[in-house]
Design a protein around this nucleic acid. Sequence first.
DNA 1: TCTCCGATTAGAC
DNA 2: CTAACGGTCTAATCGGAGA
Length: 420
Amino acid sequence: MSPQLALVDCNNFYVSCERIFRPDLATVPVVVLSNNDGCVVSRSNEAKALGVKMGQPWFECKALAEEHGILALSSNYALYADMSNRVMSILRDFAPRHEVYSIDECFLDLTGLPNVRALSYAMRARVAAWTGMPVCVGIGPTKTLAKLANHVAKKHPRSQGVFNYSALSVAQKDQLLQRIPVEEVWGVGRKLTRRLAEHGVHTVQDLRAAHVPTLRAEFGVVVEKIQRELQEIPCIDLQEIQADRQQIIASRSFGNAVTELPVLQDALSTFVANACTKLRAQNSQAAVIQVFLQTNRFRKELPQYMPSLAVPLPTPTNDSLQVNRWANHLCERMFKPGYQYKKAGVVLSEISPVTHQQGDLLEACVPGHGKLMLALDTLNLRFGRGTVKVSTQGAYSGWQMRQERKSPNYTTCWEDVPVV
DNA sequence: TCTCCGATTAGAC
DNA sequence: CTAACGGTCTAATCGGAGA
């Protein structure tokens, strides 16, 4: 039986989350900004039409925004994560197997199901009725073609939000792929687009029909897999269970530049807490910790300093207190006065499951704070992040990110539930 | 010359 | 008034060091 994969993708996801609770914004151009209110990361169709680019720094859009009344909101991840969970729990009932690919996308395995087109319309209708979220559905024999089909569904209003590549004739497929630029293909980014163009590959059809040995030699396995997927040969499996993370990074740009060591350490202890919480949530431990500091790379007139230091932990751990001590130490070693630090972060790597605990051959193991960490995680889950903290967190302020336009947590915080 | 490993690159969203 | 440009993650490939 030939495989049928659907990719369901929410339209302008962050903006749509906001609009669901602000129906008055339905016709207003709206954008959602990245952390620190830095860049545009989601745009309503109206904002796109006005020329606001994906990833554009917000300060560059200010004049245009003022002129056309574009509303900008800070990102509200608690809201987006909760809305995502609601949408995904609806979608997964439509197929025996599924993969949550990102916060706003889900692959469904529809192989063998009758009338996938009608099924797709039913999905859209149910998600809209139960959550208010608009979604588009693309169907194809491989993940890459399902993605491409989704792109077609989004781009052409005539499709009514559903496009089935598998239903096309051979001639129709040729014609369609000839009209789509190669950069629309999943896995083909800016750099590859330029290099492919130098080899005369401009459209999806060009890539699908390219000379295999040449492609392989020039562009490696990655592009060869993409080509095969376009030729309807599956190379990318559905990942039903997501693997544990191999690396955990916690970092932020600061709202204001930081010049003092203790302020950096305050920020870093928050990053350590976040990273270790994630580590414990997947029942893992890290063997290496890395800390980095960065001045503002966009302020070329200021002295630049971007140090980074990694050390193996004496024994792999997920204990926030132990990791925090190392973070402080590394920060101290790198800190040089006279710089305006704009960003810092913690990287945990060499991650393994806690069941693989190996004692130290020569020295007694440092006793962890297992029970304390469990209590901390339980309390923070129950009463909200930051209910219980390490004492070095929050002593200083000024580094916290800017977030001046955040909407209420409509679905996850009682105080924020609007009173009708 | 081969292998290993850390750093770099490219991509997604 | 001025300055104001995100965060996390993976896989492949590159290039130097050591065997």
